[in-house]
Design a protein around this nucleic acid. Structure first.
Lengths: 405, 405
DNA sequence: GATACTTAATTAAATAAATTAATTAAGTTC
DNA sequence: GAACTTAATTAATTTATTTAATTAAGTATC
């Protein structure tokens, strides 16, 4: 059975979580309101709030407005009482940042990755940069309670191992073990699409739903699936490998060897391939000029920029991509029927071109009277980074099972 | 937030559930073992077991074997202390059954459906048959604690309304309201693919996993998705409409209007269509003889029977269907990566022909080192019916939030 | 502007149900 | 048959909630 044993500890932990998140989500709220919202008694709320205040997680701020009786005392999260580290490992660079309890970035730096590198190089790169940033954070460094890492590829989040990172050409990097030994605070690692989804759930468009699918469409296509407020990992940590679901049995060959994968038709990579094909057929386009006749320089960003300038091929290509993305989304709707699907990653920059095509396909092809909302990522560029903070913050705020203080 | 408030009631309820299910799953177990398994203290187990015994849910049976001390007293579920009603609404018939707490059928009857019928006819059919069976159950009828109903189409399980039942050509049937008023016990309704999945989770192949996808492949294809031991409904109760996910953009037209839907290629209906096409092209086959030249009589069952007799076209058709099912399963693996996928419904009868093709496609096309198990339904014919019992039994055994006694 | 009412928050007493520790029950082993 | 084991129960303690009463700090009204 899945059920957990009831105990005083669990009871306390559940209620503490309720109170803490009531304060976090409402911004500034008096004890009486918390009691109403959580359905806890006023006495319980008082007790728990006292604890949270003594832990410095919560602050009494100004008094509120009386509604005919004693003034309420507004409570807020003490957002500078603790900090979290977030790391976003990309293809060519790694972004390091420190954020407060509201996931607001207070320090942010970037390191380039020089290929090729092995596991030791990679871990050394992380460790040394972290050491410097820890040091520079001065006496506040003791307030850093955890390190969250967003990483492409397949990640074993339980053991904190990057199982397969294709673009870095690395395997089985024991990140958690190494960094926890070095820094003595909890380290959490997660696949980047999953991290993005988590970021959107906590600080982006997903705050009012309990289930969502977040697409990360860049060179490839990955998805983060959140079910009942929790990331879904699947049996082998490879849930969300939606880029390799087949939508056209007789379609083009994908890098994985199969034919007609979603990402062989709808990704940034597919976009570039389509552009090159059209150009090789002699089609006139602004792209040719803008890439200075170096066709390998063409990428999604350039196509978007040319589309903005009215280049008809670029516009067409983006629209076609939008239609393919629409097919993939229709499949998600028919399979999981989530209340919300979020489109993130590089292509979401070109939303004015792709979104109409996406909506068109969804309207035409979804068979059920579906109310799934489809939107573009709210967090944008910083999505994975904010998600990385959230890996730690979500444990801090949902104290159950947490090893954080 | 999703979290629930902690309370004494919750604590008690959680532990009661743990103990009850420990007994249910283990068959015969002493208190000491329950304590070990659930990590509850012996004292708590004693208290809860006493309660369960006084409610007649649990029985002390024979003493167990001593391992060097006092003999343990074995506890079992008192399976005849309560009964549940299960109803499986098919296209042409409705199956009614009563089962004990082990989901063992003790009474089973079938009623034919005469088309066309309206909502009132349908409800009257259910009500009158239930009344008779209640009466015939004698004094034991007061032990029936709930009615579970498996129904094709889209079902609003919360409100107990069959929103859309295409084969009956009915809409918005308020089954729960009507039957609860008539019989005064809880009524639960669920889509048949979801019900099948629930049955497999509790009494079939899904007992050791917490997530699974169960395909119901008949004339169409539906899926029941179980995540963290719970049925997943999606936003509009249409999660699992996997038959209409697109796997071949340029494929044949589906009944829904789209092209290349999974079920336009892999269902019983698709199988028949393929057979007719081949026959119209003049292909010799045993099918022609066996249907007595009435081609409309050809169906999945006949094709299977001919395949058994060595008819090469029938074998080929089943293998092709298996390959298409394989594609759909690969998509499920790449999207959700569940530990288990169960194949149920009519075509699973022909497992010796389709299963090898399915495995072949999965091996060839799944990109991740996946450990998803793919098996054929354990419950077979009675799957949906057993699932219908489970709608009620699962609430009884997981007392949290239950309105059952 | 004194009295009555409201609302917020805390404190004190009562209660639920788990945990811990001690006891009883019923063996086995040498 | 004395010493040890294991199972199950009972009694005492503890945790944390709930209920009820109290204190705090207002507003409204005549």
């Amino acid at each position: 059975m899945s059920s957990v044993a009831g105990s005083f500890k669990l009871m306390k932990s559940l209620n503490r979580t309720l109170v803490l998140n009531s304060i976090r989500i409402n911004g500034a709220i008096p004890r009486s309101e918390i009691a109403k919202e959580t359905k806890l008694t006023a006495a319980t709320v008082t007790n728990i709030v006292n604890e949270l205040i003594s832990e410095e997680l919560v602050l009494e701020t100004k008094p509120g407005i009386s509604s005919g009786g004693r003034k309420p005392i507004l409570l807020t999260i003490n957002s500078k009482s603790r900090y979290v580290f977030g790391i976003d490992v990309g293809v060519n660079k790694i972004r390091f940042a420190i954020a407060d309890l509201e996931a607001k970035i207070v320090v942010k730096e970037t390191e380039k990755i020089f290929h090729p590198l092995n596991n030791e190089d990679f871990l050394e790169l992380l460790t040394s940069k972290l050491q410097i940033m820890f040091k520079n954070f001065g006496e506040k460094k003791s307030k850093i309670v955890g390190i969250g890492i967003a990483m492409h590829g397949i990640v074993d989040n339980k053991n904190g191992v990057a199982l397969l990172a294709p673009t870095l050409k690395l395997k089985n990097i024991p990140i958690k073990t190494v960094l926890e030994k070095e820094f003595g605070i909890p380290v959490r690692i997660e696949n980047d699409a999953k991290t993005l989804a988590l970021g959107e759930e906590w600080y982006g468009h997903g705050q009012s739903v309990k289930d969502l699918v977040c697409l990360n469409i860049g060179e490839g296509i990955g998805a983060g699936i959140i079910l009942n407020h929790k990331l879904f990992h699947g049996n082998d940590n490879s849930a969300g490998e939606i880029g390799h679901t087949i939508i056209d049995i007789n379609g083009p060959k994908c890098s994985c060897g199969n034919y007609g994968c979603f990402q062989s038709l709808a990704s940034g990579h597919a976009l570039k391939e389509s552009a090159l094909r059209e150009i090789s057929l002699g089609r006139t386009t602004l792209l040719r000029e803008k890439c200075h006749d170096k066709l390998e320089n063409i990428d999604g960003l350039l196509i978007y920029q040319c589309a903005l300038k009215g280049d008809s091929l670029s516009v067409e290509l983006l629209q076609k991509t939008g239609r393919y993305i629409g097919i993939g989304i229709v499949n998600i709707i028919h399979f999981l029927n989530p209340p919300l699907i979020i489109i993130g990653g590089g292509v979401s920059r070109a939303k004015e071109f792709i979104l109409p095509s996406i909506y068109e396909v969804i309207d035409a092809k979804s068979i059920t009277p579906n109310n799934t909302q489809v939107v573009v990522s709210k967090l944008g560029e910083d999505g994975s980074l904010i998600g990385a903070f959230t890996l730690v913050l979500s444990e801090l705020f949902n104290s159950i099972n947490s090893s954080l203080s």
